[in-house]
Amino acid sequence: MSIPPPDLPPLDVDVRPILRDGGEPFGAIMEAVARLAPGQSLRLYATFKPVPLFGVLGARGFEPSAREIGGGDWEVLFSPRAAAPQPDRPATAAPAAGNGNGGGDDWPEPSIEIDNRDLDPPEPMVRTLEVLEKLMPGEALAAILPREPIFLLKELESRGHRWRGATEPDGSYRIVIRAGDGRAAAS
């Protein structure tokens, strides 16, 4: 990671209007993250403390610092850590057991882990594909879904991604997806 220019201001993202409209801000946030210059911070405004994001952006090397700014709103500054992100738990590797279309041992550590359990269908699938589209070929993503995502599996297959997944004891489904090298179509 390059040395951040000291005077680069944080990129501001205010998702409060989206949240008040009952919308889903995750796509907007991830797009903002993708727009960040190297070393730039992200300043997020939300109507609640966005704890799930801490893990997601933590896995991408951002350190959160949150404060309440009145009216129940929160401001969170995600600053890049100086060092490259460390995989914080080795257990995030692809499950060895379970189903999948990807053989071999060349499974990288997932660079991002998302929890989609509390989303309405088909949002868990949309969210997973949104994040997946931002990965480089060969990078992996881990996602927890409410149940075995059979429409998603079909879509992964047709988009040329590899995956491994298994049902967890609580009935949810954990999948690790390795981004394909191009936009290969199946068949």
Binding site: N99, N101, E148, I150, F151, L152, L153, K154, L156, E157
Partner: peptide, 8 residues
């Protein structure tokens, strides 16, 4: 399991 498609 390779996923399921829409039923035609």
């Amino acid at each position: 399991m390779m996923g399921a498609a829409l039923s035609r």
